[in-house]
Structure formats: structure tokens, C-alpha cells
Amino acid sequence: MYRKIVEKRLASEIKVIKRLHPELNMDSLFSADELAKAVDKITADTYNVKSGARPAVTAVSKFIDSKLLSHFSRMAKTYRPNQN
């Protein structure tokens, strides 16, 4: 059940980002294989009977935030303003 919560939360957050930022190619940022591995890792690292689903929400947000930050960081490093 916890794994399903993680999967749904991840899908939900990605859907919101796609809606708010259609210019981002979320499919290239989050491959199906990478998402499956993330779900496995988040589930294994955060599952705690006493905490319910709260750790999943935080872990999913941190995963997505780190991926987006990494993406924008790479973009900033390659950005070259016009030299006119």
C-alpha cells in the first residue's frame, strides 16, 4: 500500500509540473526506469508504520526538487548570452 502511495504522489507532482510548466520536457527529465527506481528507493528508505504516508510526501518532493534543480543548474552552465 505504501508503494502505491509513493507512485501516486510522484505521478501527481509530475502532472502538476507539466500543467504549470509545459515548456519543460518532463518525459526526458524522468524516464520510466528512473521513476521505478525512485519509487523503490523512496519506499525502502522512508517506510515507517508509525509515520503513515507523511515521509512519502516529503521524500517525493525532495526527489523532484533535486531533479529540477540539477536540470536548471546544467542549463545555467551552458547558457551563453548574446555577445552583440
Rank of each mutant, 00 (worst) to 15 (best):
M1W: 11
Y2E: 08
Y2P: 07
R3L: 05
R3Q: 13
R3F: 01
I5T: 12
I5K: 11
V6S: 01
E7H: 04
L10Q: 05
A11I: 04
A11R: 14
S12I: 01
E13M: 10
I14Q: 05
V16R: 11
V16M: 07
V16H: 07
K18Q: 15
K18Y: 07
L20N: 14
H21V: 11
H21W: 08
H21N: 12
P22M: 11
M26G: 01
M26L: 15
D27Q: 08
S28G: 03
S31R: 01
S31N: 08
S31C: 00
A32K: 11
A32L: 06
A32M: 04
E34D: 14
L35S: 05
A36E: 13
A36Y: 06
V39F: 01
D40L: 09
D40C: 00
I42V: 01
I42W: 02
T43I: 04
T43G: 07
A44G: 06
D45L: 03
D45T: 02
T46D: 02
Y47Q: 03
Y47C: 01
N48A: 12
N48F: 03
V49P: 06
V49T: 11
K50W: 14
S51Q: 15
G52H: 10
A53M: 06
A53P: 14
R54H: 13
A56S: 14
V57R: 13
V57D: 11
T58Y: 09
A59N: 10
V60N: 06
S61L: 12
K62C: 07
F63D: 04
I64K: 01
D65M: 00
D65F: 05
D65P: 00
S66Y: 06
L69F: 13
S70Y: 04
S70L: 09
S70I: 00
H71T: 00
H71K: 07
H71S: 06
H71W: 13
S73R: 05
S73E: 10
R74P: 00
T78L: 13
T78N: 11
Y79Q: 12
R80A: 13
R80D: 12
R80T: 09
N82D: 08
N84Y: 07
